[in-house]
Write a protein that binds this DNA or RNA. Structure first.
Lengths: 300, 300
DNA sequence: TAGGCCATTGCCATAGCGGCAATGAGGCTC
DNA sequence: GAGCCTCATTGCCGCTATGGCAATGGCCTA
């Protein structure tokens, strides 16, 4: 459907070397090298920088790669459509998100969406937050759901919503009686934190630094669901965004207490799709559905 | 850049015959026929209906053609971008519109837009109204500006605005003293109409029929600018939408008087782009600019 | 019924593509 | 600092796929 040159080019961009792409594509490296040269001739500019350890895209190459990725995804969708499959309401939605969001939030969203589209299948990739936008950009997933991080990956943000951070605790916890908390309030109680590479941890650290508070950290985990269960058993106070724990709160298993002065140190939740990509009908519907849902939750 | 098969396919779709495409592309008809067969093999479905007088797309073929057109335009844009030309603010915007809109409205819009982007060039195609959406769809122009007609051409409508119809006359015309008019008011004066294939004429005819009024028609022309000048000289009352005559009104050369009960028999002005196409930066800017402008004029 | 326009098919030449092996450039290690 | 390893690139060769030409058969029109 699309010329091999573009396929090779894209694979080299992904893998970072001709030989690597050669193995993966089962095509001789020479052939790949030639096709890329041809493209560079055609555009009259180098598409890769030749580094000693492989090849990395030049700015021009980035542009072409963006185009090629779009074109391939688009072609796939069209082919599926023409073949009669996946016309509107059945199909797979590929999502990349972080562990904290995959747990409650994505489960809920998937559940509700499937009430409208029972034939939908979800492929949920739980990956490190900085990789989410990358996967969206490379077309490995259709939708990324992530807390915005200072990275300027050029993806399309369908919606961005500021979410607060709340303290999560057992319903009988002494602080559960309070309406609002400060970091200083927590200093006397054990807390459970996520690892420093998470956005959640970063806002908590910033807040502590700002208030000059040293927390009594009894658990650090990269698995937020584990932290929540730990808090549920009364072991510590944990932290989360409201949407990450919604059902647990409404079920009364945990209580969430907001912090005073909640405007600072908040995160932005983003729904991301590939820039300029024509989304398949189903994916588009889901992205709108998500946008509506988190739009409604912005008030909490 | 893209496979020849798609180029051939698209040309056959455009022209409607293999032989026609053969001449145009300087490629043997047999080669074209083969490539199309190959595509049909690949998709396991016919893309054309073979009629005695040529070939017309099947629904599956339509889908593929839409894709191919997008891909080619997109590829062109990317190529231009990579080559360094047309990065952001210089370039050509191709527009299809009707004669009535090309006259005052497009001139104004182009003029104002060029104040922000002095390097812009406009290619304005004045065509019969039903062809505007077709040209947009086939990618022959970037933007279509047209009054909505009951045709279900699948293009993307950036904005749709209901526009009223007003009577246009010399400032000294007796009816210029009135605030609002009915069709019956006009019956005693000579009027100038556009040809029956225009949307403007259609709403006027409908309005006359509804009110049971027979107009004193002294001129019919397919050239709306001529009708306006005729009105300006006092020869007759003409008709237009407010945006089509704006500068003439503000300059005091003509006066426009609205009709009572203006909700019925109005037209919708549409700004159209190719469905699901990634617009070049400049074109996108202009479409937003237009949308803002006509959005602001909806009140008139 | 003859002629014209249409797409398709068979046959052939060739340009383009991919495989293999050699070359050369640039780090890494001992 | 010498040898080795990992790269990408180039020359050569075989093959596939593509395009040109001419012939065929279907369908409509004069």
């Amino acid at each position: 459907m699309l010329p091999n040159a573009l396929r090779y080019f894209l694979e080299v961009a992904r893998i970072g070397s001709v030989n690597g792409a050669s193995e993966r594509l089962h095509v001789a490296g020479s052939a790949i090298s030639r096709q890329i040269s041809a493209l560079e001739m055609q555009f009259e500019t180098p598409l890769f920088e030749r580094k000693p350890r492989g090849m990395v895209l030049t700015p021009a190459g980035e542009k072409l790669a963006d185009y090629a990725r779009r074109a391939f995804l688009d072609a796939e969708d069209v082919a599926a459509e023409i073949r009669g499959r996946v016309d509107t309401l059945r199909g797979t939605i590929r999502i990349a998100t972080s562990e904290g969001l995959a747990n409650v939030f994505m489960s809920e969203m998937a559940y509700f969406f499937r009430e409208k589209y029972p034939e939908v299948r979800f492929d949920i990739h739980v990956v490190a937050p900085p990789n989410i936008a990358l996967m969206v950009r490379e077309g490995e997933v259709d939708i990324g759901i992530a807390f915005a991080v200072g990275t300027p990956i050029p993806v399309h943000v369908v919606r961005r919503v500021r979410v607060t951070t709340v303290a999560i605790m057992h319903p009988n916890h002494p602080l559960a009686a309070r309406d609002h908390l400060t970091m200083a309030d927590l200093a006397n109680y054990p807390v459970a934190l996520s690892t420093p590479d998470t956005t959640l941890r970063q806002v908590i650290d910033m807040r502590c630094a700002a208030e000059g508070v040293l927390l009594n950290v009894v658990m650090v985990s990269s698995h937020s669901a584990g932290l929540m269960h730990f808090a549920r058993q009364g072991g510590a106070i944990a932290f989360a965004s409201p949407i990450s724990v919604r059902t647990w709160i409404t079920d009364g298993l945990l209580v969430a207490r907001p912090f005073v002065e909640d405007t600072a140190f908040n995160r932005s939740l983003e729904i991301q799709t590939m820039a300029a990509r024509k989304l398949p009908r189903l994916v588009d519907d889901f992205s709108r559905f998500l946008a509506d849902e988190i739009g409604g939750q912005i008030a909490l």
